[in-house]
Computed example of a mutant assay.
Amino acid sequence: MTISMYQASIPVFLRALDNLSAILDIGAAHAAAKQLDPLVLTGARLYPDMFPFSRQVQIACDMVKGGAARLAGVEPPPRADTEKTFAELKERIDWTAAFLRRFDAEQIDGSEDRPIVIRTPFGELHFTGQRYLLGFVLPNLYFHSTTAYNLLRHSGVELGKRDFLGPA
């Protein structure tokens, strides 16, 4: 049995976003219960030169937004990185999920060999669609989602592996 590019991308992206949104809910509830300023949590960093929690969520969203668009051969829509609160970050996740739901299998399947070029401050990165999905988008999605989880956990939010993985 084979897995299609669509099956390996859009449903996986949506599940990760759902789980990330649930983690934000737990973080917001923790802040309320402990009478913490929620911006302390959304601004938390593991180390001074790392991005804060809010940026981790933004990047996770950007990865899947760009991933879906590029695999479909369209330009990803721009989105400003202004979210700071749990509510704003959840709205970004919802916006990203709605964008992902616009794609169907016909737009993504067959993109394995599509040339994809990413322009970064460090130069251009060249991929085929499959290498882009499996070697860039998914690892970045999980890195930034895991970092967001770890930032909340490190800040005392009671999260477990099940929260990260979501329902079976």
Rank of each mutant, 00 (worst) to 15 (best):
R45A: 10
V117G: 02
G43Y: 00
A16L: 14
N150S: 15
R70K: 15
L71M: 09
D81P: 03
R45I: 14
R92M: 14
R153K: 12
H30E: 11
A87Y: 07
L165G: 12
Y6L: 09
A60H: 03
E158L: 09
F53D: 01
G110A: 02
R79E: 10
G110F: 01
L165Q: 09
K65G: 02
V117F: 04
D163Q: 11
Q107P: 02
S21H: 15
V12W: 08
Q35R: 12
Y149E: 00
S54V: 13
D37P: 08
F13W: 13
L165P: 06
I118K: 06
P38V: 05
E75W: 07
L41T: 00
L24N: 07
L39G: 01
L17Q: 09
N140C: 07
P139T: 14
R114Q: 00
L152M: 13
S54T: 14
L46M: 12
S54A: 15
N19T: 11
P38L: 06
L100G: 04
L71R: 01
T85Q: 04
I59Q: 04
M63Y: 04
D37V: 09
M63S: 02
Q58S: 11
F103D: 00
A32Y: 07
T146Q: 06
F143I: 02
G73D: 09
V12E: 11
T120H: 07
Q130A: 07
A98W: 10
K84C: 13
P115Y: 15
R119A: 13
F51S: 01
L159Q: 06
M50Y: 04
A97D: 09
T146M: 11
R101K: 13
G160T: 14
N19L: 08
L141C: 08
Q130K: 10
R131S: 05
P167A: 10
A33F: 13
D18M: 14
T128D: 05
R153G: 04
T82D: 08
L100N: 03
A16N: 13
H30P: 09
E106G: 08
H154M: 13
A68M: 05
F143G: 00
D163C: 11
L134Q: 10
E83K: 01
T85K: 02
I23E: 03
V40G: 10
T120L: 04
G73I: 06
H30F: 14
F136W: 06
E75R: 14
S21D: 15
F136Q: 01
Q7F: 12
R162S: 14
Y142A: 03
V157L: 05
L100W: 06
G110P: 00
D81A: 10
I10Y: 01
Y142C: 07
Q35N: 12
L141Y: 09
E83S: 02
K65Y: 07
V64F: 09
P78H: 11
R15K: 15
D94W: 08
P115I: 04
A31G: 03
A98C: 11
P11Q: 15
F53C: 03
S111G: 06
E75N: 14
N140V: 06
Y47R: 11
P121M: 10
P76I: 08
A80V: 13
V57I: 01
D25W: 02
L134K: 08
F99D: 04
S145Q: 08
I10K: 00
Q58V: 13
I3L: 14
D113Q: 12
G66L: 01
I118P: 02
